[in-house]
């Protein structure tokens, strides 16, 4: 078994993506949400909501709790983990991330898969 190759893309400088903020970016044709959590950790998730593909970066966000509410239908996600809070059990796809020389890189696995989860609901 061979490990999946990861293709790294530089997306933002840390001077653009401040702590407590998020931005969205297209990486290799895929919409990605990149969040700089309070405390310094950087995470990257699928950029569209698993419900109806509304852009998550259009939503509301509480930097203290790291909770994001999708603007479409108020679905809630914990951006520390990508886990769905309401509805529970609907998790965002998480991309690998690294920060080198004040630059954020998002990794795209070269696995031929779609890098987002869908959770249709009412």
């Amino acid at each position: 078994m061979t490990a999946t190759t990861i293709e790294w893309h530089a997306v933002f400088g840390l001077d653009e993506l401040w702590e407590g903020d998020f931005l969205d970016v297209e990486v290799a044709g895929e919409p990605v949400l990149v969040v700089h959590l309070l405390g310094g950790e950087v995470k990257a998730y699928q950029g569209v909501c698993p419900h109806q593909e509304v852009m998550l970066a259009d939503g509301d966000w509480d930097e203290e709790s790291s909770v994001l509410w999708c603007g479409g239908h108020r679905w809630e996600f914990d951006l520390r983990t990508g886990e769905g809070i309401n509805p529970a059990g609907c998790t965002l796809y998480e991309y690998p991330v690294k920060v080198e020389d004040e630059t954020v890189y998002v990794g795209v696995p070269q696995d031929g898969q779609r890098h987002y989860n869908r959770c249709p609901g009412t």
């Binding site: 419900h51 239908h73 679905w75 809630e76 309401n86 509805p87 609907c90 609901g121 009412t122």
Partner: peptide, 16 residues
């Protein structure tokens, strides 16, 4: 109503 349903364990995927 949304807050009440959330308290009662009804997920947003079951509400329109």
């Amino acid at each position: 109503v949304l807050a009440h349903l959330d308290d009662g364990g009804v997920g947003l995927d079951r509400i329109a």
